[in-house]
Design a protein around this nucleic acid. Structure first.
Lengths: 213, 213
DNA sequence: GTCTATACATGGATAGAC
DNA sequence: GTCTATCCATGTATAGAC
């Protein structure tokens, strides 16, 4: 069922064989890391010979790039949806954190590749990905700035706090295991509460409301 | 000066050549990852031939393990010192977070290897490292439990919150750059404040005090 | 303890048949 | 579009001289 979700994420743009290679690549890269993964392994998981990989992707690095780009676009979409949604900054921030943390938990396999294999990208591919990452940072910082302007949040260091919030969610991909005791939904809820307390103005209307559920 | 600190961390137990290989290994593994690093590269950075590495370490994996063990022992020492220090839970937690985040920033090169190359360890070496990591988790959770018992903290999910706090600090190693605008000290201060707000009881004596510096 | 030289395995990528 | 076979570079680790 994890497989189904991961597969669905690649859409219907590519031929089916390319999709199989993408999911195989995600699994292999997440398990062993990009450099330790062989093209033979990827092709094998997709039920193909090593040579078949090169019909659909120019190089092994190109396969990584496609995975990374789709993943980053998805991540940006999640934050953008929350940022552009209705409601006060506190509600929008909670939505963003809930969904972003949840995504990193539910798709920790993809997220691991997306977040930890950037260094393996070629120079041009890397630049394209960095642009997407800047978007994500800017969108989240915007929500926090809104909350500070409205007096809803009290945050001394907005860029630092935005960085910490993203960092907290991203690191979920490192440690989350489907076998663990927490579901992605529960984790999203926990994290939204923790972040809410991090930014809430002391006298605010619901300061501390999330502390004891 | 980063080099001096990294070197100093390896103590004076080993012959000097082994120390050079350890620092070279840290730098290389942090830059390119364990699997993408060649023994030629490590030996070259240490000013030696590839063969010299095998005089001091049984395999490349053994070199990684030594780095990982020293790093984890250092990390545990930092958390243990804070946990066993004097003062209320809030003070001890702030000390732990300040020092732990600061260490991951200042020694982000070492920390990157310590935190992100675990999967490259052999089975027995991995088990030894996992034991150290469990210690770290237990020590931090203990501080939070103390604060909850004393009514100083209000935390609904103690294990989840402890995990989030460690996760936040660990991820510093991923993004921190010495070229960035924040110093390790400033980062430790910021993070201690953020975590303080995450756990503080709403009516507590200094609830929100850290919000505006 | 360090070197040069090298054995031996593995892996990315391609050629050419089907 | 996929396969089998293979080229060629690279990488870990060792042998043996100094």
């Amino acid at each position: 069922m994890q497989d189904v979700q991961e597969t669905a994420a690649w859409g219907d743009v590519e031929p089916e064989a390319a999709q199989r290679l993408l999911t195989a690549g995600v699994e292999a890269f997440a398990e062993r890391g990009y450099h330790a993964t062989t093209t033979r392994d990827i092709a094998g998981r997709a039920g193909m010979s090593p040579a078949a990989l090169y019909i659909h992707f120019r190089t092994k690095e190109d396969l990584l790039f496609r995975i990374s780009r789709v993943g980053h676009e998805r991540a940006r979409g999640i934050i953008a949806a929350a940022a552009e949604s209705e409601g006060a900054a506190g509600e929008r921030l909670a939505r963003a954190v809930r969904a972003f943390a949840r995504w990193h938990a539910e798709h920790h396999t993809t997220a691991r590749v997306v977040q930890y294999e950037l260094a393996a990208l070629g120079e041009e591919h890397y630049a394209e990905i960095v642009a997407l990452r800047r978007d994500i940072d800017r969108l989240l910082r915007g929500i926090i700035e809104d909350g500070v302007r409205d007096g809803e949040f009290a945050v001394a260091d907005v860029p630092g706090t935005a960085l910490a919030v993203l960092s907290l969610c991203v690191d979920v991909a490192r440690w989350f295991s489907a076998a663990g005791s927490r579901s992605p939904d529960e984790l999203g809820e926990l994290y939204a509460g923790l972040v809410g307390r991090m930014v809430a103005a002391p006298g605010g209307r619901d300061a501390g409301s999330s502390s004891q559920k």
